[in-house]
Structure formats: structure tokens, C-alpha cells
Amino acid sequence: QQIISPDQYIKHPLQNKWAMWFFKNDKNKEWTANLKLITAFDTVEDFWGLYNHIQKASKLPSGCDYSLFKDGIQPMWEDEHNKNGGRWLVNLNKNQRQTELDNFWLETLLCLIGEAFEDLTDDICGATINIRGKGDKLGLWTKDARRGDATVKIGQKLKERLKIPVKIAIGFQAHSDTATKAGSTARDRYRV
């Protein structure tokens, strides 16, 4: 009779439950109708089961997004958890879709589910990858744009984990600034 060790059948629980969302741009539908919840998971094994099963971000058509948010937070500014928050934004140029995009996104997912932000986990809402013809964007969303020290520490950790060169700055914008700034981009509240 074969003896199975507990490691072989007990999944590794995550600190938080996370929900993966998919957005597909269909101009004939309302924005919210284009946003679909794929699934929620709370173990390491279920994360990989999902990740290995879905299309890589670099293979998505232009106009699509993936988002990973804590369960109960919708990936939109209007959500109660996001409305006072903002995002660290990493802009990718066209060449980086082939070379960096999938690595950046996976690394960000591992930061979220592995709680890389440690005691600042309560500041974290989720992350989004936007696939766009004019340049893809990675955003790490936090819940309160006024929390300067925490926000800067989160940005530094993200930059370190993505191995973004020190000389390349990334910026953080409050959603309230982005929402009211039609056309051009909002000013950065913080940079690292």
C-alpha cells in the first residue's frame, strides 16, 4: 500500500483570495458588460491551474486586459476599495510585448499572491495589464493614494521585482486625477 505524504494532497493556502478578470473591448456593449470574472482562487496550486490554462497576456488582442484583484474588489476606479487609490504604472514599448510583457505580468502576479508587499498587504488592491496597440501598460493598484510612505515602498518593491533599471523611473497616479484628466495623462503623485 502506497503512503501519500500530506504535501502531495494538501494545497498551499494563500493569505488572500484573488479573482482573475478579463476585459475585451467591444464598442457595441457597455464597459461593464465587457468585463468578465474568470475565476477566484486561494491556493498556490489553483493559481497555477488557472495561469497555465489561459492565454498568455502577449497573445491577447489589442484592447484586452487581464486583472487580478483581491476577491470582493472590482477592477474599476468606482469600486469602494479603489476610489481613493491609484496605480503604479509601468509603460511598455511595442518591442517589450515580445520580450518583457509576460515576465512582468507573471512577476506581478507572484508578488500579489505571495504577499511580497508584506506588512503593506492591506494597501494592495490588485493589478491590471492592458494590451494596447499604442503600448501596453501594467498597473499595480493600491487603495489610498494619500499614504505616501507605503505607496513609495510598494513602488520600490515592484520596480525591484520587475528588475526595472534604477535610471528608469515609474510613476504613481491617483485614480481621481486620472478620471478627471481627459485626454492627457494625470500628473504623478510619486515616482521611484
Binding site: H12, P13, W48, G49, G114, E115
Partner: peptide
Amino acid sequence: GKKHYDREFLLQFQFDSAAI
């Protein structure tokens, strides 16, 4: 307890999940 997992720990399960 807090469940903080580093990237190497998480990555080792990437290709185990199909069996579970």
C-alpha cells in the same frame, strides 16, 4: 499565520498543478 511565499517557492509548483 502570515502566508508570504517568495517567487522560487511559488514557481516550483507551476507544473505540479495538473496532477492535483
